[in-house]
């Protein structure tokens, strides 16, 4: 095909490479470097007056606020109050969600009765219901936990029955063909098959739980990270506000890390 012939020999040119790419990998050291660079730039900006202290406090000031919080002993009270609400609400919301999602995934009656209801309530921002919850469950812990429970319940229901719907029907036929009982098929084939979807639902509902926690604590809470942020905000104490937000971010990261570990453990068969 080539027209450049030297003597009898045809000189070839290499086929141009056009594959590869589109496979971003995450390199471990990059993230901390970016993180440190941003904080350093921020600190530098505040010290030189490039960033006005009225707009954003320096990271060192936020850190001082954090140390004050630790030294006064209030950190543990805020954290304990928040974590208790978060864990109770998220755990019971997730458990109930898995149960109801399983019922919808398995039974025609539950599916026809509950699925439309779930679809109707799921998109409502649960924060809008907070006043109602206060009337129903009181202004104390009840309404706060109920908000989180309600908010995490629906995404879990949807993730669970979606996961069950996607279980390979061939595996269920196999179970039936070997005479497995209905209970065994549910326990050993359907639920493990839906587990990946349930765990990614848990990831989403954990993030929702933290959002709702702060919202609920902004109404009538003495202790809690949300209350701390609210007070800081009303006093224009931006250093404390940044501290509170950083604590929330850490809680979110720890939750995600725990769920990541659970995925690694329970889904090790996926390679």
């Amino acid at each position: 095909m080539s027209d450049e012939t030297v003597g009898n020999q045809i000189t070839g040119k290499p086929v141009p490479y056009r594959g590869g790419g589109f496979l971003p990998k995450s390199r471990k050291i990059v993230a901390p470097i970016v993180f440190i660079l941003i904080i350093a730039f921020w600190e530098w900006g505040c010290r030189t007056g490039f960033i006005s202290p009225l707009i954003l406090p320096a990271p060192s000031e936020a850190f001082d606020a954090f140390m004050n919080l630790v030294n006064s002993g209030l950190l543990w009270q805020h954290l304990a109050a928040s974590l208790q609400r978060l864990l109770i609400g998220w755990f019971s919301g997730t458990m109930l969600g898995i149960i109801v999602g399983t019922l919808i995934g398995l039974f025609s009656i539950a599916r026809s009765g509950l699925q439309p209801l779930v679809s109707a309530i799921f998109p409502i921002p649960k924060i809008a219901l907070l006043p109602l919850f206060i009337i129903w469950f009181g202004i104390g812990e009840g309404s706060k936990v109920a908000t989180i429970l309600f908010g995490t319940f629906f995404p879990t229901v949807i993730a669970t029955y979606g996961g069950i719907d996607n279980v390979d029907r061939g595996l269920i036929r196999m179970g039936q063909s070997f005479g497995l009982t209905r209970m065994s098929i549910i326990r050993k084939i359907i639920l493990p098959g839906a587990l990946p979807a349930i765990l990614s639902g848990a990831r989403i509902s954990a993030a929702i739980a933290i959002i709702l926690l702060v919202a609920a604590e902004m109404i009538a809470a003495e202790y809690g990270i949300g209350a701390y942020i609210l007070i800081a905000g009303s006093l224009m104490a931006t250093d404390q506000l940044i501290t509170g937000v950083a604590i929330l971010s850490c809680i979110g990261l720890i939750f995600a890390w725990i769920i990541g570990k659970a995925e690694k453990y329970f889904l090790k068969w996926r390679a």
Partner: peptide, 30 residues
């Protein structure tokens, strides 16, 4: 005989979350 009519499927129908022995013990556990 534990299961008189027993299938072998085209797509194998093995549970990916069970090992080889786990897949066999699955049909014996009942």
């Amino acid at each position: 005989c534990l299961n008189p009519l027993t299938y072998i499927f085209q797509d194998f129908a093995l549970l990916p979350w069970r090992t080889v022995e786990g897949n066999i013990s699955l049909v014996l556990e009942n």
